[in-house]
Design a binder for these strands. Structure first.
Lengths: 126, 126
DNA sequence: CAGTTTAGATTACATGTGTAATCTTTTTGA
DNA sequence: TCAAAAAGATTACACATGTAATCTAAACTG
């Protein structure tokens, strides 16, 4: 799977939110949150195209960029490799680590509970 | 917090499992699983000392290495920054992503359920 | 039409990382 | 005792990444 660096990820997020977009618009949006020169963003676009994470089509003189991979696919891939790296591939210990450090709010716990309930439900349905 | 690269992490794992250890033993253990030259491992040890992730004390001519940070601290830190990066800081969506991709076994779900139950219990106790 | 702006392409450069090899010093075995 | 082994220190080198600047060609502007 394609590796996306931290800086590149910011670019991907813009395009996952809305695509296709010309470079100029991507620059505008990123500059709301990142202190980057337009040139820097062009470099990142280039690298993402080279990596195959973005494709583009010519639109007049400029390009319209769009992701080749869905955000959810990337999230899954990155999540799996992260959990593999540090938690022996199991997500529950990660959650337990957050809990032990009191990083889970009442709401978080409620959401998790609901999710688990739903998963059990699906199990029964099958 | 200290950043630990992938290769360095393998070294840390050995020492989280057992410490302190002399370089020679670390090499032996790592070579069970990694196809690395002893020199490579020495480099990693050096870098980890420079980063402050390991300390050592002289033992005759050799060094005895040991972690300066606990595995659980590193797991929490890395987990938080990962979840921040891709899941807006919330762990539940990560779990949901795993679930949606059918990456959770029946056992995983049972474990999660037990964890959630325990967290609710703790809430009540407080 | 010529100068300026602008799009993308190419080049740059420091730092981190993977993966060692060489150097220096000390110890040890023949 | 003298060469070989071994420990750590230093150096190496390619590729990735952060962060741009420069180059080139097209388009727009006065």
């Amino acid at each position: 799977m394609i590796e996306i660096s931290n800086a590149e990820l910011a670019v991907m997020k813009v395009l996952w939110h809305e695509a296709p977009l010309p470079a100029a618009d991507i620059v505008t949006r990123l500059q709301q949150t990142q202190d980057w020169q337009a040139k820097t963003i062009k470099t990142l676009l280039n690298r993402l195209v080279q990596k195959g994470a973005l494709s583009f089509e010519q639109q007049g003189r400029a390009y319209l960029y769009q992701p080749t991979i869905a955000e959810s696919d990337y999230q899954l891939h990155a999540g799996q490799s992260f959990v593999q790296r540090l938690f022996a591939g199991k997500v529950t210990p990660l959650v337990a680590t957050f809990a032990a450090a009191e990083q889970l709010s009442k709401d978080d716990i409620a959401e998790l509970k609901a999710l688990v309930a739903q998963l059990e439900q699906e199990q029964n349905d099958v």
